[in-house]
Simulated assay, not measured.
Amino acid sequence: MVPSGYIIRPVNAGDLAGLFALCLQAGPGFTSLQADETYLRALITCSEASFGAPDSGAKGTHFLVMEYCQTGDVVGCASVKTGVGSDAFMCADFEMSGPSHRPNALTLRRTLQGFTEVGSLFLHPAHRASGAGRYLARARYMLMATRPDLFDQPIVSQLRGWCDEAECSPFYDAIWSPRLGQTYAQTDARLARDGAGFVLSEFEGLNVPLDTLEEAARHAIGRPHDTAAGALCLLAQEGFRASSLIDMSDGGPIVLSTLGELNSAHTARQVVLMDGRPEPSAQMMLLASSSLQDFRAYVGCVSIDAQDLVICHASALNQLRASEETHFLISAPPPATPGKEPHAHTNWSLDNV
């Protein structure tokens, strides 16, 4: 029996229904995944333009979906955006200030101008046990390795902040509910649609002493949502580091890196694919095409020898649309951290400083 795998590819207009269903699974607070068809159509159009003409400008959105080969269902997504924080779509975050070991205040600033952002990482809960999520995350870095000239800027990832069992953000409720008069979900939707300009126009430079916040709000600073803790662990293993910034809306962590520091990008190497039956000891790996415009990646069990010859099933080659002219990349997985629990790096909140 040929084991099922996953294909990762650029989103297209035919994915609208599947992507909408995925957004419903993601729930509130996932700013870049809004369950709104108008928003998603615009996202798909922007991504198709970015893949179709990657050299047309400094700003672009490369949105990927993960498809389960056995059913054809869209079960995950991830994205890479370039030129974020423009005047047309501003970014704003809180910067922590005070002693490095114990910040004492937050200041709202315009941030991340011209950065490359990796985000929108989400995998349907039914597929998380397969381990496919870590490969979906790494596919973004393999995509960036196809065109370092486009993505070689400071790289940022912003993670959803902690919410309680009712999906309420104590950080948002303490700082923004009385100032904006909107719910967390309403503000999140507007930030996704319009950027942070409407907040900066009135509140840029807002200073919030931490001792004025209730304990629940302070506890949420730099703390990821429970569903984002695993993603933060993967980012740390890949080469991202903590920053002094936190998400404006819910206080989630913001981490930074560069393309040269990302394990999957700097260890990527070309391999040759061959149709065959992988050995019984074959392990799940990520194979990615080396072309940005024709980018596709496969997650499944393959064998690889010392000469970088990769043996995989014909079904995988078909999914990758492999030909003699197509070059493929593989990279070493991020090194594990000996003696650490899987999520040992995930809590970068004030509780740990």
Rank of each mutant, 00 (worst) to 15 (best):
Y39V: 01
G252S: 05
D55W: 05
M96H: 10
L292H: 10
A185H: 08
L286H: 00
M1Q: 06
W162Y: 12
L286Q: 01
D73F: 04
H219Q: 14
A322L: 05
A314K: 09
F171I: 03
S157Q: 02
K340R: 13
G85N: 13
R218C: 15
R109V: 14
Y172Q: 11
E167W: 01
F203H: 15
P170C: 13
R190K: 13
Q158P: 01
D173W: 02
M248C: 15
C91A: 15
H124A: 08
S323M: 00
L259E: 05
R138W: 04
A58W: 05
G276A: 11
I311E: 08
F51H: 03
G251K: 06
G119T: 04
Y135P: 13
R134Y: 00
L210R: 12
A306V: 10
A196G: 06
S120R: 05
A174Q: 12
G14D: 07
L232N: 06
A26C: 05
A192W: 01
G114R: 07
L206W: 09
R41T: 11
A332K: 05
F94D: 06
W162G: 01
A78P: 04
I155A: 08
N104L: 07
A332H: 07
E279A: 15
E37V: 08
L43K: 13
C91F: 13
Q237P: 03
P280Q: 01
G251H: 08
G251Q: 12
M1V: 10
I44M: 03
F328A: 02
T31K: 03
V84E: 10
S291M: 08
E48Q: 14
A217E: 08
L317H: 02
A332P: 01
A13K: 10
R193I: 06
A332T: 11
L210M: 14
A185G: 03
A306L: 12
P253M: 06
G195H: 09
A166L: 15
T107Q: 14
G52D: 03
L210Q: 09
N207V: 15
Q70Y: 00
E324F: 03
D308Q: 13
C233L: 10
V208E: 07
V75C: 07
L320R: 05
R138E: 07
A58N: 09
L213K: 10
H124E: 02
S100K: 14
G57T: 05
T183E: 11
D351W: 01
D87A: 15
P28A: 07
R193Q: 14
R134Q: 10
S157H: 01
Y141Q: 04
V310A: 03
Y298S: 02
Y184C: 01
V118P: 08
A288M: 00
K340M: 13
R41L: 07
R296F: 00
V353Y: 12
G339P: 01
T45R: 10
P224Q: 09
H225W: 07
A92Y: 12
